[in-house]
Design a protein around this nucleic acid. Structure first.
Lengths: 230, 230
DNA sequence: AGGCCTGCTGTCAGTTTCTGGCAGGATGAT
DNA sequence: ATCATCCTGCCAGAAACTGACAGCAGGCCT
């Protein structure tokens, strides 16, 4: 691999990381020595890439570098289409439409041959029946999460007895058989998980989650030591 | 000026022209010889740039080398991220990387607030164990499907007895517990499904599927009356 | 303070790549 | 046929790239 292609690869590699990544890790993925990596980083910085490196931390590429990314590869298109198909097959109609629309927008910017690749993509997802979610409209939940609004729910707890709670929703887990809403529960003053099909009814309040707690997902990740960021 | 920066310059230079430009003109603007320019063009083409050059004409860069800015709705972003996460959690390392790269590229061309939306997305996928696929390298299979190349496989049929076949692969099904390769089987002269974990070994031939049968997926869909196009 | 991880720089020799020039072929328009 | 241009192969000198080593510096943790 020539140096020029490697530099492009390096930019793309940096783009895929959000948290700082060590030079050693980058060098290993690129198959070069650390020394050479430092030189490559320096070259990119000289060309205007806003790469921040701090001792003991690693590197982060700050967005807005003048070079837009290269076009999607065939494999990347396959990954997106496969993912969209899973969403279409396994979630609800709103997300399904969203997935279709997203693909259409992506298709619109693809050159002809890649658009063809997208349209004739041959990775399929099994289409078994969808999980039961009861009467809960998950698109409402997603909207509440985005807006950072509290929810009032009537929930059947593990014994089946109904309880009413005010919760601060922050994530929605898509499992094979069920949907789980992760939230901060005002009643218990702790993180709680709620199965969608056990939510009897739900009202979106117009009360915002307090500013201090707006990163509940990150907080929850720390508490549960969840690593995977993808 | 190093070669790598010059290649970036060349792309930018080409983008500023609408009408064909002669190689000589480009070489002069870059301060290099015509011979070197031809080499640079070849390098860019090898990296995916759609540069058309015609004798007696000049060069034109056709759009599609770089990703243009894009607008997606919040819900479309959620759908893409959720799908990518499923791909990352449930398929193989190659597709996982592809999904990450695709999202990174899309993020780079989104306006700032939407990029933030993409990065803090709160829809999660359960990360249970991945299905067993045996020793089969599915990225090789995907590549063969894309290229329309026949495969020679050693397959353990339903009784466990090994058979050798030449097949024309056209689709790969991602089920919860297994991966299924859909293909035309020369041995049976019919469509057949092969479970990935039962494929003992596999060789990609360089024989192309006959032109008449290049739309096996569509043909198969017709035969099986499969409707869902998503 | 001391240890550790990490970024960063200098130097050097061996290797690889790059470059320009030349010669010749090929292609499409006129 | 002629012209403009793209394109390829070859070659030798020039330029760069590369890895290794050695060392410094900044921030975090105990």
């Amino acid at each position: 691999m020539s140096r020029s292609t490697r530099l492009l690869d390096l930019i793309q590699l940096l783009r895929t990381y959000r948290r700082p990544v060590s030079g050693a890790a980058l060098a290993q993925r690129l198959g070069i020595s650390i020394r050479t990596l430092y030189r490559d980083i320096a070259t990119l910085q000289a060309q205007g890439a806003d790469i921040q490196g701090a001792p003991g931390f690693g590197y982060v590429l700050r967005p807005g570098f003048l070079m837009p990314p290269m076009m999607l590869s065939e494999e990347e298109i396959e990954a997106l289409v496969l993912g969209a198909r899973w969403v279409a097959a396994r979630t609800d109609d709103d997300l399904k439409d969203a997935a279709r629309n997203a693909l259409a927008k992506i298709a619109a910017v693809l050159p002809t041959d890649l658009r063809h690749e997208l349209e004739t993509n041959s990775l399929l997802v099994s289409s078994v029946r969808k999980p039961v979610v009861g009467t809960t409209d998950l698109s409402v939940v997603r909207e509440a999460i985005r807006q950072g609004l509290k929810l009032d729910i009537n929930y059947a707890d593990i014994n089946g007895s109904p309880t009413s709670r005010r919760i601060w929703p922050f994530a929605l887990g898509y499992y094979e058989e069920t949907r789980v809403l992760a939230a901060w529960c005002e009643l218990r003053e702790d993180f709680r998980h709620f199965r969608a099909e056990r939510i009897a009814s739900m009202t979106v309040t117009n009360i915002r989650v307090p500013r201090k707690r707006q990163h509940l997902l990150a907080e929850w990740r720390r508490v549960h030591n969840v690593k995977n960021d993808m």
